[in-house]
Every structure is written in structure tokens, then in C-alpha cells.
Amino acid sequence: MSKKMDIRWHGRAGQGAVTAAKTLAELISQEEGIYAQGFAVYGAEKRGAPVVAFTRVNDKPIRDHSEYMEPDIVLILDPTLMGLIDVKEGLKKDGKVIVNTAFDKEEVIKELGLEGYEVYVVDANKISIETLGRAIPNTPMIGALAKVTGLFSKEEVSKGVVELLEEAGKFPEKIIEGNRKAIETAYEEVK
């Protein structure tokens, strides 16, 4: 299977969409024969404004530096964004959408007009509150992404993120363990 895929992340400034894109690239950098590029579109947004981040994944080195993307996968980190943004913009015909939401898949499809797309839901806010004590949806969403794309197994993705957090050397054991749990839970619960 080709590993080529384009991913778009929607969140609000401060929620970690850019960090998630970066973390994914970091995970990929540990693997042989797969490449990634992550970037965001920068305006003058302050905390709370909608932000968009992108990840390109390919089995060849990525050279294109344009911002244009027809994503294979769209991730929505903030459920409150759903009415505000055009989730479908540029989304490929057989594209996938992963939504952080407490609602059922059917409700989300109806709400966003996503009929015909593969839609997945995961309650990343609930998961992160349970595991990390705060609504930081970006790590659980990486777990969900791993499952949906098949890029990483559950063990690979949780081990990978844990190693990155440990390497950073500034997170207490509790936070690292919380992140591991969040990723694994989201991996299992995304549907």
C-alpha cells in the first residue's frame, strides 16, 4: 500500500493542531522509507482563532513547498468549529474525516453534509479529560489517525509518542502516562 497521503488539521489556536502535525512528522521521521512534511497557514491569529495545519506523508522525500492540498484525510480537533469551516474543501472523493465529537457518527454526517465520505468519530475531549485532566485533544486524535490510516499500530503510535515526550525531557511521568492512555483509548474508541 502506498503511504502517500495528505492530511489537514482543523483546530483553534492553542489547541495543538500544529503540535499534532509536528508530532506526526516526528513519528514518521523514526521510520525508514517514509517521509513527512508539516506546516500551518499563519495569519495573525491569537489564542482561540481557527487554525489549519497540514501534514504531507509520502514514501518519497517531499519537495513541494506549496500550501495547496487536496486532503485524503481531514481531522477536526474542535467540535465547535464544525459549523464555521468548510470541512469538505478540496477533500478527495474517497476522503476520510475524523471528528472529535461526543455526537454519533450519523448526526455528524448530517450536520456537516458529509454523505458519501468515510466519517469517523472519537470523543477526544472526554478521553483527554479522563487521562490528562484537561481537554487537549491533539494526542488522542493522533491515536485515532493511526487507526484510521493504518500508518501505525496501537503499540507503535503510543510507544512513539511516549518516546518523544520522554526525549523532550520536560514532562512529568504522570503526563507521559496520561498521553499513552489517551492515544491507546482513542485508537480503540474511534469508529
Binding site: A21, A25, E26, Y35, F39, A40, Y42, P61, I62, H65
Partner: peptide
């Protein structure tokens, strides 16, 4: 190197 296209893009 190009601002944002490279300065802010994560690459491997």
C-alpha cells in the same frame, strides 16, 4: 531560506 515555506515547515 524561505520564510514560512521552509522556516516554519516541519521536514524530515
Amino acid at each position: 531560506f524561505d520564510g514560512f515555506n521552509v522556516s516554519h515547515a516541519i521536514e524530515i
